[in-house]
């Protein structure tokens, strides 16, 4: 009986202790976490480009030893080789960045909201209202053609089309849970699906029920010469037949006969020909050189003059 009681008591005591410890700095921690979730998370959650991971005490220890002011400076001004100033989010105020640093330091020291980490944050808290964060319109952000890391692969409740009020939404798997283990690419899902399959990192079934069924892969490259200065297109049957059946493309989309298919980027952009998949589910048309990959045989100028 005594033992049964002791557990809840301990939990209560711990809860009260945590409340006492975090009480005064709670708002600051929340601010730090919010900034971390928005900006820093892109690198500091997975340890991209050598970034010390959140909660990784070993990686953080030498940095914490260098002093909190050094850390603040590195975060705000950036640090070679990979840390951009303010993690790339230059519209975030210094105070907010400091709060995020405090949050990460606290996490590394073993408990978010430790008073030790919060103490240097006090002046930052006072400065915070003086420099409110103004969200910048999308058109004015740096390189609007590129999605910032914080906006890639969000979990379903935050992706803008799933309804966060629906309980089922929260039961769905988040893309990053899987994508982190897969080779990345620069567009689409930001996953290199062909490489993922080639390297056996995924094992999608070829048959609905039979896990052993394997595709008949056809290794035949079709070269299409294109007008203008773009390199010619090499179409590999190999990568396509690993995913698709012949009947998916032939004869409805492509007549299986040399020279019988008029293909243009216009048609592809409109969702026809290659655009039936590329630009909808397979890598998008922004990745020109994956298809346009064969250098043209241009006659050198010297030879042309000699003739």
């Amino acid at each position: 009986m005594n033992r049964i009681l002791r557990v809840p008591m301990a939990v209560l005591g711990l809860a009260a202790g945590t409340l006492l410890a975090t009480g005064p700095t709670f708002a600051q921690d929340e601010k730090g976490k919010a900034v971390y979730d928005k900006v820093c998370v892109a690198c500091h959650s997975a340890g991209i480009a050598g970034a010390p991971k959140l909660g990784d005490a070993k990686a953080w220890a030498p940095r914490i030893k260098a002093g909190i002011d050094t850390l603040y400076e590195s975060a705000i001004k950036g640090k070679a080789p990979a840390m951009p100033a303010k993690g790339g989010a230059t519209d975030v105020s210094d105070a907010d960045i400091k709060a995020a640093v405090d949050y990460m330091v606290a996490a590394a020291e073993g408990g978010a909201g430790e008073p030790a980490a919060a103490a240097p944050a006090a002046p930052a808290a006072q400065a915070a209202p003086a420099a409110p964060t103004k969200p910048r319109p999308a058109a004015l952000s740096f390189n609007r053609l590129l999605k910032p890391a914080s906006k890639r692969n969000p979990p379903p409740p935050e992706d803008g089309i799933h309804d966060p009020d629906n309980d089922g939404t929260h039961a769905l798997q988040a893309p990053l849970q899987v994508f982190e283990a897969l080779p990345r690419s620069n567009a689409g899902n930001r996953v290199d699906w062909v490489k993922s399959l080639d390297n056996n990192l995924i094992a999608p079934r070829w048959d609905r029920t039979d896990p052993a069924a394997a595709p008949v892969v056809m290794d035949l490259n079709i070269v299409r010469e294109v007008k203008g200065s773009m390199p010619d297109v090499v179409y590999p049957h190999k990568q396509h037949t690993a995913w698709l059946d012949c009947s998916n493309c032939h004869p409805q989309i492509f007549i299986p006969q040399k020279g019988a298919n008029q293909i243009s980027m216009a048609a592809i952009l409109l969702g026809q020909k290659c655009g039936v998949c590329h630009g909808k589910v397979a890598f998008p048309v922004s990745e020109c050189r994956i298809c346009h990959s064969k250098k043209k045989n241009v006659m050198p100028v010297k030879n042309a003059q000699a003739q």
Binding site: I161, V178, P204, R205, R208, W243, D245, S247, N248, V276
Partner: peptide
């Protein structure tokens, strides 16, 4: 309905739904 292609293509190749089950593109 939201159909996540990424989730399904990890588990099945395109052919299973788009050839065997008759889903149009």
């Amino acid at each position: 309905v939201i159909f996540p292609h990424w989730f399904h293509r990890i588990r099945f190749r395109c052919k299973v739904c788009h050839a065997d089950l008759g889903f149009q593109f």
